[in-house]
Design a binder for these strands. Structure first.
Length: 421
RNA sequence: GUGGGUGUAGCUCAGGUGGUUAGAGCACCAGAUUGUGGCUCUGGGGGCCGUGGGUUCAAGUCCCAUCAUCCACCCCA
C-alpha cells in the first residue's frame, strides 16, 4: 500500500508528461486564438456550492463527491467539475461588471468517487471553457468549434459532434408532464433504473441504453419536438451557425446530460476509440448564475476529458512525443576530474543549450551510451591531452564525425552546429 | 453501486493433473573495445509469485477472503 497510488489515481511519468504538456499547450493556444483567458480556481470548495450548482439529485452529488470536514468543522468538497467553481469566482469578484461577455478557460484535476475503468479515474483532468453573459446562438456554435479545433490540432479526426436542445424550465416541465403521461401505462416494462427515473428525471429515460427501454420510448414525446418557440428558434440558429462554419453534426434527440443546470443547447463530442464514453461534454446553463445567488445571466461551456483525449490520440497513433530534447552531452576521459564536465555543462546551459553529463563516474564508453540514449545531438569529450592544449573534442552523434575545438570557442561552435541541424 | 475476467522481475509473459535453488524476451549494469554510442557476444544485479488466511508432509499451482486492475453496466470527462 505504501508504494501504491490510491485507487483511481495514477502517476504521469516523464515520457507521458511530455504528451500532457503538448495537449495543454494546444488548449492554451486555441483559447488564445478564440479570445478566452485563463482562470484558476481552488481544487476544493464549500460543499454547498456543488449541492446547489450541480444539483442534489445528480449522480455526481448523490454518490460521487469527495466530501470531508476540515479542522474547522466546515464541509468542503474536492471539485467534481469545473463550471460551478468558475461561476462562484465570477460572482465573488464581481466580474459581471466587466466587459461582457466574459470568456474563460481552465485546466486541472477534478475528483469523483467513481468506479475506475479505462478512461475513467477518481482524479481526472479536464480542459474546459465558460462564457458568461451571452445568449447569442453564435456563442453556442463558437464553443463547439473551439472544442473541435482543439481536437483537430492534436491530430484527431475520427470524432463526431452530437447536439440537442433540452429547452428551458418552462417547456421542459411541459414535456416532462407529457412524457410521464405517455410512459405511465408501460412503466412496469422498463428497467429498474428507468422506473426510478420516472419521478426524478423522466427525460433521462430517453437516454437509457437498454434495448427494451429504447423500443418502449420510440414514439414517446421528445424534448426537441416540444420546445417553446424561443427555444426552438435558438436551436435553429445554433444549427445554422454550425452549417455556416461547415461543421458536421448529428442531432440526437435522446441526448440528455447528467447535470441539472443545462438549458437549451446540450452537446457531446464522441470518438469511436472510446466507445460510449464521451471526449467532451457541454451545454448552455442559462439559470445557473442565479441559482448560485448571482444575477440572471446566461452561460455556456464544455469540459474535455484529458485522459480520454490522450487515449484517443494513442488509438489514432498520433504521437507528438519530441524525444531527444538534450542537445549536448559532456563526457570526460582518462583522469579528467568530474568538475571539469560540471563547469562545461554549466557554461553551455548559461548560453542557452540543453546540456547534461554523467554523474556516476562511468567510463567513456558508458558515457557515450548514456548520451545516445538521452538523444544528445552533440557530444563533447574532455580528455587529458585536449585539456592540456586548452581544447576539447566535439562529436556529432548522428554522423559520427569529430573535430577538435578550442575550449574558449566551444559554446559558439556548438551553437553553430546545433543551428545547422 | 451491479456482473464477469485477470494479478509471477521495471515491462510483456511462460511456469500440464501441487513436488528440490521460480524461468524467458525486452530493459538496466559491467566486460569484450585500458579514450568513442547504435550492431553482436559474454556475464551480472534484480522476485514477501498482489495481500491475509485455509487445505496438505509439501502451495506460484487448490479453497476462501481482501486489495488492485481490466471489461460490460449505472453514470460521466
Amino acid at each position: 500500500m505504501l508504494t501504491k497510488a490510491p485507487r483511481g489515481t495514477r502517476d504521469i511519468l516523464p515520457a507521458e508528461a511530455e504528451r500532457w504538456s503538448f495537449v495543454e499547450k494546444q488548449a492554451a493556444e486555441v483559447c488564445r486564438l478564440f479570445g478566452y483567458a485563463e482562470i484558476r480556481t481552488p481544487v476544493f470548495e464549500h460543499t454547498e456550492l456543488f449541492l446547489r450548482g450541480v444539483g442534489e439529485v445528480t449522480d455526481i452529488v448523490a454518490k460521487e463527491m469527495y466530501t470531508f470536514k476540515d479542522r474547522g468543522g466546515r464541509s468542503v468538497t474536492l471539485r467534481p467539475e469545473g463550471t460551478a467553481p468558475v461561476v462562484r469566482a465570477f460572482l465573488e469578484h464581481g466580474l459581471a461588471a466587466e466587459a461582457q461577455p466574459l470568456k474563460v478557460y481552465y485546466t486541472g484535476p477534478m475528483f469523483r468517487y467513481d468506479r475506475p475503468q479505462a478512461g475513467r479515474y477518481r482524479q481526472f483532468h479536464q480542459f474546459g471553457v465558460e462564457v458568461f453573459g451571452a445568449n447569442d446562438p453564435t456563442v453556442d456554435a463558437e464553443v463547439m468549434v473551439l472544442a473541435l479545433t482543439f481536437f483537430r490540432r492534436l491530430g484527431l479526426s475520427r470524432f463526431s459532434l452530437h447536439i440537442n436542445s433540452v429547452g428551458c424550465p418552462a417547456c421542459r416541465e411541459a414535456t416532462r408532464f407529457k412524457l410521464r403521461t405517455y410512459l405511465a401505462a408501460s412503466l412496469a416494462q422498463f428497467c429498474p433504473d428507468c422506473v426510478g427515473r420516472y419521478d426524478k428525471n423522466p427525460l433521462r429515460i430517453m437516454d437509457c441504453k437498454v434495448e427494451k427501454c429504447r423500443e418502449l420510448t420510440d414514439g414517446a414525446p421528445v424534448m426537441l419536438d416540444n420546445l417553446c418557440s424561443p427555444c426552438a428558434e435558438h436551436f435553429r440558429e445554433v444549427r445554422e451557425a454550425l452549417a455556416v462554419l461547415g461543421e458536421q453534426y448529428v442531432v440526437d434527440s435522446r441526448l440528455v446530460r447528467g447535470l441539472d443546470y443545462y438549458t437549451r443547447t446540450a452537446f457531446e463530442i464522441v470518438s469511436p476509440a472510446l466507445g460510449p464514453q464521451s471526449l467532451c461534454g457541454g451545454g448552455r446553463y442559462d439559470h445557473l448564475l442565479k441559482t448560485i445567488g448571482g444575477p440572471d445571466l446566461p452561460g455556456i461551456g464544455f469540459a474535455v476529458g484529458m485522459e480520454r483525449t490522450l487515449l484517443a490520440m494513442e488509438a489514432a497513433g498520433t504521437n507528438p512525443s519530441a524525444a531527444g530534447r538534450l542537445e549536448v552531452f559532456v563526457a570526460t576521459a582518462g583522469s579528467v576530474p568530474g568538475w571539469e564536465a560540471l563547469k562545461t555543462v554549466t557554461e553551455l546551459r548559461l548560453c542557452g543549450m540543453a546540456a547534461d553529463k554523467d554523474y556516476l563516474g562511468r567510463g567513456l564508453r558508458a558515457q557515450l551510451k548514456s548520451a545516445d540514449r538521452k538523444g544528445a545531438k552533440l557530444l563533447v569529450i574532455l580528455g587529458d591531452e585536449e585539456l592540456a592544449r586548452g581544447q576539447a573534442v566535439v562529436r556529432d552523434m548522428h554522423s559520427g564525425t569529430q573535430e577538435t575545438v578550442s575550449r574558449l570557442d566551444l559554446p559558439v561552435r556548438l551553437a553553430c552546429l546545433l543551428r545547422e541541424d
